[in-house]
């Protein structure tokens, strides 16, 4: 990656971090706690997504 692209990308990421951080703090504070069952119901489809990506990699 050329230097100016690196610098531009870094600036964009820093700005994103600065803009997103206050919203992130609010989301973290307001997020309800999930039970173990609720986390399992979320992690199972996400695990399937991970397995699907592995399958795609094997197919390429």
């Amino acid at each position: 990656m050329e230097l100016w692209m690196k610098i531009g990308s870094a600036i964009l990421l820093v700005i994103m971090l600065i803009v997103i951080f206050p919203r992130a703090r609010q989301m973290i504070a307001e997020s309800p706690k999930g039970s173990a069952k609720e986390w399992l119901s979320a992690l199972i489809p996400l695990a399937l997504v991970a397995a699907f990506v592995v399958l795609l990699v094997m197919m390429v």
Binding site: M16, L17, F21, R23, I28, A29
Partner: peptide, 21 residues
């Protein structure tokens, strides 16, 4: 209801942004 994931996801996203940086 997946609203409980909000804090986890945004924290993960911030970590990823910093790693990408």
């Amino acid at each position: 209801d997946f609203s409980f994931m909000g804090g986890f996801l945004i924290t993960g996203f911030l970590v990823v942004l910093m790693a990408a940086l």
